[in-house]
Design a protein around this nucleic acid. Structure first.
Length: 355
DNA sequence: GAAACGTGGAC
DNA sequence: TGTCCAAGTTT
């Protein structure tokens, strides 16, 4: 019954001491000894960090906070500007929910984020993890903050053999038992930092871990085998066509439907996504009836749940009525606001046709 | 509960 | 090269 032997203070005290010693400076973190963190910055960083690495987030966070320093400023922004600023970060529903949340806070809460988990959970894009993280980090209130790092640390600490994701409820309960009341935000961040830098998914560095004394997996030498994970489904391969339509120095971009894959983002005109390649002489989803020339080869882009093989067609408008859409100068900057998928397709087309 | 939803870095 | 993974949420 190792769970009983690990008292909160045996974890929190050495962990917090380690955190104070090794404190990582990150743009959304209040410097040591400074005033409490700004809820807007905490919230923004937590949304951006969902399933996304710190290194990828930093430049986006700097850009967003410079351009929209407050939640009210963000709430007043144009949808297209925010989505464009998010381009390349991925999981674009986050950007759509970000705006919806900012507007809810600005209009429904007087520009102040609510400070309870329950109220935070009611806001778009804020789930169990983010609500707890904001409660602890921005408001200093005790909350049980469980992300992927914490699950890993706790699974090892208590040598939980049950695989994820079914172990989630047990891991949450165990996290509750070691969560202190004091320094709630620091404890949460310390757990996540530990998971990111010491209690890593592969090759955990138990020799330098501040809580290895209390760790059942370390004691038994099985830390690198935990947590166990259920097998994931294989990634299917799918196909689509994209169209680079030119008119003199411009190319056509279109706004995608507001939900679903890359929802709301600007992109190249694209066919439906199919399970097999389309015949070269049919052009479902093409923006105009013109002569299309197929690029040699395909662009491959790997999403979480499928691998997309894109055939890139280019064509010239040459006198046909200009279809509606966002016509952009056909240079490198055309790809600026686009999801990576379309940046790749444009790069591919540029290599083939050098426009 | 399972599937949808991006991207880039590490090994 | 392929696989795994990163501070998850929504439907």
């Amino acid at each position: 019954m190792p769970a009983k032997e690990i008292a909160p203070k045996h974890i929190a005290a050495p962990l917090l001491a380690w955190y104070d010693r090794s404190h990582r400076r990150l743009p959304w973190r209040a410097p040591p000894g400074a005033n409490a963190a700004d809820p807007y910055r905490v919230w923004l960083s937590e949304i951006m960090l969902q399933q996304t690495t710190v290194a990828a987030v930093i430049p986006y966070f700097e850009h967003f906070t410079t351009r929209w320093p407050t939640v009210e400023a963000l709430a007043a922004a144009e949808d297209g500007d925010v989505l464009a600023a998010w381009a390349g970060l991925g999981y674009y529903a986050r950007a759509r929910n970000l705006l919806a949340c900012a507007r809810a806070v600005a209009e429904g809460h007087g520009g102040h984020f609510p400070s309870t988990e329950e109220a935070l959970l009611g806001l778009p894009g804020i789930g169990a993890y983010t609500a707890a993280a904001i409660t602890a980090i921005a408001f200093g209130e005790r909350a049980v903050v469980v992300d992927g790092n914490v699950e890993r640390v706790v699974a090892r600490l208590f040598a939980v053999e049950e695989p994820l994701p079914s172990a989630k409820p047990a891991l949450r309960t165990l996290t509750d038992t070691i969560t202190p009341t004091a320094r709630a935000g620091d404890f949460a961040q310390a757990m996540m930092d530990l998971g990111a830098t010491v209690c890593r998914p592969r090759s955990p560095d138990c020799l330098v871990c501040p809580i290895a004394d209390s760790c059942d997996a370390a004691r038994r030498g099985i830390a690198d085998l935990l947590p166990k994970k259920a097998q994931k489904a294989p990634r299917p391969v799918r196909y689509a066509n994209v169209y680079v339509l030119r008119d003199r120095g411009e190319i056509l971009l279109v706004r995608r439907p507001p939900r679903g894959l890359l929802g709301g983002m600007l992109g190249l005109p694209m066919s439906e996504i199919a399970d097999a390649p389309m015949a070269d002489n049919t052009h479902p989803g093409a923006p105009a009836l013109t002569r299309w020339s197929r690029g040699e080869g395909r662009v491959t882009h790997v999403f979480t749940h499928f691998e997309l093989h894109l055939t890139v067609f280019s064509g010239d408008l040459s006198g046909i009525t200009k279809p509606a859409g966002d016509w952009r100068a056909a240079d490198e900057s055309a790809a600026r606001d686009l999801p990576t998928l379309f940046r790749k397709a444009l790069d591919f087309a540029a290599c083939v046709d050098d426009f």
